[in-house]
């Protein structure tokens, strides 16, 4: 028998009990990787070790241990651990959810942009059509740096607004248009939303009421979402 092998063989039993000192243990581990006979011998000693675990006569702990465990179980659930596959699936689902949310938001944003472009297109086309119509009245205005024109079609109850150089509006505010009757009452005509990088804004007011009942047009700065009646500072006032 090889002398080195014999020396290692003598340490196997202690290794099985975890009683070898660290340096001997490391050396034996390396030897075990290449020595089948020693691995077989180790297995036998380890069975003895496992037997020693179970060899002691059972000795029940006090009932308070069981009660304490039940209390600890109620207080702390085991950490929820996912297998790799479950974690991967969960991650994929979470990613899909995030992408869906992003997509929905993008679709909503695109819809809003589309609606705004449609509104602008409608306003522009209507305003051009009104310009070409012989009975349209044009009312120019120039007040406090804001200039432009109102195109008024009293037969169709339409008012087109061309306003240049409106000041930028704060994020929590909006420009609201009003038509003013002879009693001074105001009827909302909708909103003007200045676009970035564009010096003018166009809007068309289409009334269900006869336009002949109104004598003035105004713009005020209102809280975002608008007001039933003017509450903010006046930006523009034009006689019709």
């Amino acid at each position: 028998m090889d002398e080195t092998h014999r020396i290692f063989q003598e340490t196997i039993s202690a290794y099985a009990l975890g009683a070898l000192d660290a340096d001997e243990s490391s050396a034996l581990k390396i030897h075990l990787q290449t020595c089948e006979a020693c691995r077989a011998e180790l297995a036998g000693y380890q069975r003895v070790g496992m037997g020693l675990l179970s060899a002691l006569p059972p000795q029940a702990p006090g009932p308070q241990v069981r009660r304490a465990l039940q209390k600890r179980l109620k207080g702390s659930r085991p950490s929820f651990q996912l297998s790799f596959g479950q974690a991967l699936l969960s991650g994929a689902l979470a990613l899909m959810l995030v992408l869906n949310v992003i997509s929905i938001r993008q679709v909503d944003s695109l819809k809003k942009q589309q609606a705004e472009l449609n509104r602008e297109l409608y306003s522009g086309q209507t305003a051009i059509a009104m310009l070409a119509y012989p009975d349209t009245q044009s009312i120019p205005f120039y007040q406090e740096g804001i200039s432009g024109s109102l195109l008024v079609d009293r037969q169709r109850n339409l008012v087109a607004v061309f306003a240049w150089h409106l000041p930028p509006v704060p994020a929590d505010k909006t420009y609201q248009m009003w038509l003013i009757d002879s009693q001074g009452d105001r009827t909302s005509g909708g909103f003007l939303v200045p676009e970035m990088n564009r010096p003018f804004e166009t809007a068309v007011i289409s009334l269900s009421l006869p336009l002949t009942g109104f004598t003035g047009f105004g713009i005020t700065l209102e809280p975002f979402g608008g007001s039933p009646k003017p509450t903010g500072p006046r930006i523009l006032l034009v006689d019709l």
Binding site: L53, Q59, A60
Partner: peptide, 8 residues
């Protein structure tokens, strides 16, 4: 198994 564990 509490008896075995506790004995150990």
């Amino acid at each position: 198994y509490a008896g075995r564990v506790h004995a150990l």
